[in-house]
Design a protein around this nucleic acid. Structure first.
Length: 427
RNA sequence: GGAGAGAUGGCUGAGCCCGGUUGAAAGCGCUCGACUCGAAAUCGAGUGACCCGCCAAAAGUGGGUCCGUGGGUUCGAAUCCCACUCUCUCCGCCA
């Protein structure tokens, strides 16, 4: 949520930001209604003050045994006026909230201005894409051939965009989760959390999924519960409605969760393989920081995610998303894109964002700079550390051999019971 | 699913029957000060959030709102009435 005071004071600044995100203005209404509301409040507050004083007086008079009929009759009328004003204000508040909750975050200055992903800016590359002396297979061919992914039977269970992992495939997925969590906990200092996979609508508003993107999520019937689309939601909302002390910051949190996405509007994209699923596994990184350190922390968080790919020996590049490609809640986002030989392209495998105070304002997460100071909003950051399913795809494709087998990256072997490779079908 | 109890400030917890300086006792915590070589203990003072107005602004100051949420009664509600949500205990069921 944007700062209403900023919207009031510098609407042109926000208008410009919205335009850069291909969102046409719409702040005029906000300014107008906001002004109207404040005028009403001034009036209502005056009347309430009048009533409060009269009530105190009545209390006093009754104590002294005086008659209060006269004054009560007068003040009764004021009560009616107050009620009308409060009613009008409430209507305006509803509309103002609605406007504010549907406006995206303002991009940071360092974000390239652009229309879409074509305007994203490559920041750096790591690793060499491997030269194959045979035709590398895409993972949707490799997986079934190795008998580690079963797409056809998954359809029987749940329909399209679901996968069954089998044998060493299931083991690989589980190994990756443990490998990533251990890295972030032991080396990077994150606290491991295992949160609920379903959360309330309030949480979804807090991190920005609602009210705008309800279509993208799975909701339980007759209940105010949603399947988490990412662990960012429960992790960030852990401290909802709290005032933290400054020595609690920065908070580093990591969690494995399954992630559930309806993928509304993505028909026909990545229909093959495990790249785009209704359910996938992810290890997520979340930080709560002071505004002063948040951008430094974004760099570190991104590196924490990168290290997963480095240790697994998977080539990738880091991309600074342009204003047109930025997510709703983010002020700045680095995408990590892994090289997929089957695709002959880089594919997003992690997305690391600084949301600044956008989510903190929605979720009301604050901290006290010191014991006497007023509370301020924290900055929230999140990043995939990293998407597990896509990592499996990347390993299968990057580590495939001519004989159809797939080598297990060195760093992962302790998590695979020492297994060095997934044997090919002919073995 | 059945029966009961509850939701109050950073925390614990009074107030609710009998509506009136109760933003809310008390304790803890926290901040500042005294004591001390220093610390602990002790003593003293202070200690909420949010909104709006004035002020260029921080400070300050004036007003308003807030005792789970939303309504109602009343001149006036933490306190009375209604609805909802959540939590806890016991029983049942269950990985």
């Amino acid at each position: 949520m944007l700062d209403p005071k900023l919207a009031r004071a510098k609407p042109e600044l926000i208008e410009a930001a919205l335009r850069s995100r291909a969102m046409e203005g719409g702040l005029d209404e906000f300014i107008r209604l906001d002004q109207e509301r404040r005028a009403l409040q001034v009036k209502a507050d005056e009347l309430k003050n009048m009533r409060n004083r009269a009530s105190a007086q009545i209390g006093q008079m009754k104590k002294e045994g005086q008659s209060t009929e006269e004054i009560q009759k007068q003040i009764r009328k004021v009560g009616g006026q107050i009620k009308d004003l409060d009613e009008k204000m409430k209507q305006l508040d509803t509309r103002l909230d609605q406007i504010l909750l549907t406006l995206p975050n303002i991009p940071h200055q360092s974000v390239p201005v652009g229309e879409d992903e074509d305007d994203n800016e490559e920041v750096r590359r790591w690793g060499e894409s491997r030269e194959f002396d045979f035709q590398p297979q895409p993972h949707w061919d490799l997986g079934p051939a190795l008998d580690v992914l079963d797409f056809e039977r998954a359809i029987k269970l749940s329909g399209a965009r679901f996968t069954v992992y089998k044998g060493l495939g299931a083991r690989l997925e589980r190994a990756l989760i443990n490998f990533m969590l251990d890295l972030h906990v032991n080396k990077h200092g994150y606290t491991e959390i295992l949160p609920p996979f379903m959360v309330s609508g309030n949480c979804m508003v807090g991190t920005g999924q609602l009210p705008k993107f309800g279509e993208d999520m799975f909701k339980l019937e007759d209940r105010d519960l949603y399947l988490v689309p990412t662990a960012e939601v429960p992790l960030t909302n852990l401290y909802r409605e709290e005032i933290l002390t400054v020595d609690q910051l920065p908070l580093y949190l990591t969690a494995y969760t399954a992630c559930f996405r309806a993928e509304a509007g993505s028909h026909g994209r990545d229909t093959r393989g495990i790249i785009r699923q209704h359910q996938f596994n992810k290890v997520e990184l979340v930080k709560l920081t002071t505004p002063e350190q948040s951008y430094e922390e974004l760099e570190k968080l991104t590196q924490d995610a990168e290290e997963v790919l480095q240790l697994l020996g998977l080539p990738y590049r880091v991309v600074n998303l342009s204003t047109g490609d930025l997510g709703f809640s983010a002020a700045k986002t680095y995408d990590l894109e892994v090289w997929l030989p089957g695709y002959q392209d880089y594919k997003e495998i992690s997305s690391c964002s600084n949301c600044e105070d956008f989510q903190a304002r929605r979720a009301n997460i604050r901290y006290r700079p010191d014991a006497k100071a007023r509370p301020r909003y924290v900055h929230t950051l999140n990043g995939s550390g990293i998407a597990v399913g896509r990592t499996v795809a990347a390993i299968l494709e990057n580590y495939q051999e001519a004989d159809g087998s797939v080598v297990i990256p060195e760093a992962l072997r302790p998590y695979m019971g020492g297994i060095k490779a997934i044997p090919g079908a002919d073995k």
